[in-house]
Write a protein that binds this DNA or RNA. Structure first.
Lengths: 349, 349
DNA sequence: TTGAAAGCGTTACCAG
DNA sequence: CTGGTAACGCTTTCAA
């Protein structure tokens, strides 16, 4: 039959015959307080197990110490990005409201509004909506910092963004394969409406040209970043192999890489002997897959850390009412990928 | 040079020469409002792009529409649990504050306090702290519902919990292996301070006895649920194989399973031919690993859904001020595991 | 159908 | 050093 116990400054103040202000001051360690009252108050605080009400505080201070994070799928590499974000943000006493949109662009607006209702101090957004503009403008108007990641935003607003250097990623892949003696390289990419897909694809063409390798359009497959699409693309490539021969294939997402592997197995083809394979985001932490797969690896945790740091900065500037034109300087940060060379491509032809 | 735009009920009310109450009523659709004023207000709301301030609302209503979720590691199978939680909770307009403790029990208290400061309406807690008691009691006193998952809580408070039926999981493994003709079965388990580890281990012994199979203590390895530990345990088992022979091994976590595989490879042993292997949480979604590994699979998404539903119920009861003894009825829900039989054990000896 | 006012728990300013 | 008071934005009761 315990009493429900939710003490407030008032409770404590009344019990001690002190003013709320005084109690507030010792809680926050602000202002000058006599040692005697401080001790008295501390004891009462302890006795009542006082815990400040951040809601009330937020109402007053216009700061919730909370940031929103919107991702298309937590059970993806985003989980590790979030770990990085969380590490940085938690150290500054911020917490994260996490939203998973299940890759449904239409949900983004709804959640952005919900988060705004909760008065988040900042937003990290991995959008999959090619028309994310509307709510972005709203946020800008409300003066809430946003940092984009994964896909580059299409909005015309100036925005911060942290992304992988996808152009470079494709260059690394092409250069590596070229070094191994490959000339005819196929690529399996996602939808060009997503900047990640577009950049990986464009980067591929650029790198091929730089290496003076032939770009055969029939070897450039566009799909949707999913297993089924990767599988389908690979099947088509293999079926057309006589007319459009290739010796290496570059799959530009984790799921597509899996799909490509699946197709190759069905065709009874082995890597690297029959076809060299380079994947994307293919992390086999414990080396269970043999032969091991060469893959572009994103610095996922670091992406999270950089994201969080950038957001912290913006939120800080916001507080300090930094002059607008100083504040408005935005950055697009591109982090370098790593090419982890495994057996699947590590053979000179 | 846009104005920063944060309209409130007051802004609207003043512009329209109406009272705040009236505007509030049309925002919430409560009370009786004349069609005329409603229309007028709606228009102003739209014009100002009014978005209610949930912080202020929360202060008044004592509801934040937010629940805390504490997990040891998001980049684990918890990601999928959270997806389930999120799906259910989001449909009721709740959002999730996510905390990753990095498996450090000492952080749990700190975060529980932080979340309480934010006045979450409920908490989902996957604790790894064998002494999580203190703050639990606090939450109970504050009348905030908690639902545990993964590990069973040790607190003496009555609590809700949703867990895998670990005893049954081990029974399924033993029965399967027994059917395949195995008699000497080794098990690699985690620390008994975590209930998951304890139950999997106990379940194993019980099932062995039920099947009248010999329980050789030297074949029961205790470690820490991590790769290194799984590896180490397997190495020891293999080194003692002459004195303590076994034909099958059961690894009780994902990482341990990977460790065991690693050790077997180093010893040049193949499954199922040399030793049969059954793992835990070993999901190879795209069937990339060959031969495929038999494993206990948790209904991860469903765990999340059940968790969220249970919490919603408690929060609901809380609101309705249900009489204490009705409210206090708590449940421990055990969800059934699945044994996904792969090649690694699917051979009669 | 509408308005006035109290109050949720804080912070911060101004007096003393 | 301490107290009083206004204000943050909202909901809700009571009156009109």
């Amino acid at each position: 039959m315990d009493e429900i116990n939710r003490s407030s400054l008032k409770t404590i103040a009344q019990e001690l015959n002190l003013s709320i202000s005084t109690v507030s001051r010792v809680v926050n360690g602000t202002g000058k307080i006599s040692a005697a009252t401080r001790k008295k108050v501390m004891k009462a605080l302890e006795k009542h197990q006082y815990v400040p009400n951040q809601i009330a505080r937020s109402l007053k201070t216009n700061e919730t110490m909370t940031v929103g994070v919107i991702v298309p799928d937590i059970a993806d590499y985003f989980a590790t990005v979030i770990k990085g974000v969380d590490a940085v943000l938690a150290s500054k006493e911020y917490s994260i409201i996490l939203v998973d949109t299940n890759e449904q662009p239409e949900k983004e607006h709804h959640y952005m509004r919900l988060l705004y209702e909760k008065r988040i101090d900042g937003l990290l957004l991995a959008t999959v909506d090619p028309e994310e503009n509307k709510w972005i403008t709203e946020y800008k108007k409300k003066n809430i910092p946003i940092v984009f990641f994964d896909n580059e935003p299409v909005t015309s607003e100036k925005c911060d963004a942290v992304m992988l250097d996808n152009i470079k990623a494709s260059a690394m892949v092409v250069n590596h394969l070229a070094e191994m003696g490959h000339k005819n390289i196929a690529i399996i990419c996602g939808e060009r409406s997503e900047s990640t897909a577009k950049e990986r694809s464009d980067g591929f063409r650029i790198a091929m040209k730089n290496k003076r390798l032939p770009v055969d359009l029939a070897l450039i497959k566009e799909g949707s970043f999913h297993l089924e699409s990767g599988y389908q693309s690979m099947v088509e490539l293999l079926n057309n192999r006589k007319e459009h021969p290739f010796t290496a294939v570059y799959a530009t997402s984790y799921k597509m890489t899996c799909g490509a592997i699946k197709a190759m197995r069905e065709f009874n083809l082995r890597y690297p002997d029959d076809i060299a394979l380079v994947g994307f985001d293919f992390i086999d932490e414990y080396g269970l897959i043999e032969p091991s797969i060469t893959s572009i690896i994103q610095p996922v945790r670091n992406i999270g850390c950089v994201l969080a740091s950038r957001l912290l900065e913006s939120m800080q500037n916001n507080k300090k009412h930094v002059e607008e034109d100083v504040y408005t300087v935005t950055q697009t940060i591109r982090l370098p990928p790593e090419l982890k060379v495994g057996a699947s491509s590590n053979k000179r032809i």
